[in-house]
Amino acid sequence: MGAILTVRDLSKQFGHFSALKKVNLEVEPGEVVGFIGPNGAGKSTTIRILLGMLQATSGDARIFGRDVWSDAVEIHKRLAYVPGDVNLWPNLTGGEIIDLFMRLQGSGDRAQRDRLIARFELDPGKKSRTYSKGNRQKIALVSAFATDAELFILDEPTSGLDPLMERVFQECVEEVKAQGKSVLLSSHILSEVERLCDRVAIIREGEIIESGTLNELRHLTRILLRSETVSPPEQLETFPGVHDLERSGSRAVFQVDSDQLGAVMNYLAGLGILKLESTPPTLEDLFMRRYEQSGAKRSETER
């Protein structure tokens, strides 16, 4: 198989509470896999199990072919982790902490470290208690990307960073990917996931409910169309898979299920198309649809 990371039927119980129910996940070499889901869905639990901090109740999890619980120390020599909440010792400076982290992980070189510090515009001479959340995240990011790790596990790594730094982060991910390394990225910033990830796994209430490439997942959602036709598309509302239709004369704005697209296009073509704009579904749309809860308000109109 050769997968860097394999998770099979992973389950975790906390007392009566089932945090994870038979989760399956895989990361191949050179792949960036996105791991998304609402708060409390089990992303952090999964990651903590992968890092050997929690023990799974049942199931199998392997990195580099080794068990994540019993071989944790060996695995971690080739792994880099960036947590969502970075906690640092207040009296050590950023530079000291980065050096410490690199030594404890066991790889990486100074030149790379210094380059990253410059790219992330970090001042390493200040005590970490003076750092904002964003700066603490930068320390974790520099410490991770300065190593020679083969697998990067990133848990909401950029939630405190502004777009300038977000861009630097994305460049780093692309660089390691080009080197054939793998990344597991858990994030709420769906634009980031869309841009970086080859595949995406969606978790909800402890179960993986969707998994595949973005293209595969797009099939399961809708496309937004704005059309203007020669003759008014009066029959449009009768088509199955057409939603939220707003029509005024010959103009129409609506959503259509991906698998109905062909039929609708044929119909519009028959009416004579003057203008047609289509917006492919974003990951956010997909996400929203899969997570709609009763009472939550939809707002496609806000786009």
Partner: peptide, 23 residues
């Protein structure tokens, strides 16, 4: 205003023991 701190860790810090001692 913060005093400038160390840019690099001293070798003595670079181990769990060193860290514990420092803390």
């Amino acid at each position: 205003p913060q005093r400038g701190g160390r840019l690099h860790a001293r070798r003595s810090l670079l181990s769990p023991f060193g860290l514990t001692l420092r803390l």
